[in-house]
């Protein structure tokens, strides 16, 4: 099959790549661009480990085709920190020990960031429901929810 040439923006950088028409955005990020921060937990849109935003919408990158993302703006975990400076969510995940094995962490961070953009002051329940699409097997979620709430508070007072 002939590869497709795509020009798009990832974390603010203009990026060109070639992909098979069957490759997902997750495949492109990992196999073509070697941006491995976005993880594959299931490949079927059920676990949220591959969460990215596409023109500001939170998506599972395993459910988006690489060929669809031309002239879009994609944000991944690699774009979350500003150089050495971690995003408040990243710092709070560290401080609250809101991660163990860490495979779900990038997706949870991307999803949490989107939540706080939409709702800077979410209730505990709103955090839990928003993150219900991001599976974690290690932590039992409690510390994650606390970290997000703490980050939200810090970002509001900043």
């Amino acid at each position: 099959m002939k590869k497709v040439h795509i020009s798009t923006t990832i974390n603010g950088d203009e990026v060109d790549f070639l992909c098979e028409p069957t490759q997902t955005l997750l495949d492109v990020l990992r196999d073509e661009l070697h941006m491995t921060g976005t993880k594959e937990g299931c490949g079927t849109g059920d676990c949220g480990a591959c969460s990215v935003t596409l023109d500001g919408t939170l998506v599972c990158s395993c459910l988006v085709l690489g060929a669809e993302v031309g002239d879009k703006s994609i944000e991944t975990i690699e774009g979350m920190a500003q150089g050495e400076e971690l995003h408040p969510l990243q710092q709070k995940f560290i401080d609250h020990v809101a991660l163990q094995c860490g495979i779900c962490t990038p997706g949870l961070l991307v999803a949490s960031k989107k939540l706080l953009e939409r709702n800077p002051d979410p209730s505990e329940e709103e955090i839990r429901y928003w993150l219900a699409g991001n599976l974690c097997r290690c932590t039992g979620y409690q510390k994650i929810v606390e970290a997000v709430a703490d980050a939200a508070q810090e970002m509001r007072s900043a």
Binding site: H34, T36, G37, K39, A81, L86, V97, G102
Partner: peptide
């Protein structure tokens, strides 16, 4: 209570798991 030593690269998406080797 102290944070995990490996947490910074995990939250940055830089930790290297098996599938991350190319």
């Amino acid at each position: 209570r102290m944070p995990r030593v490996d947490a910074p690269e995990t939250v940055a998406g830089e930790a290297m798991y098996t599938d991350d080797f190319y």
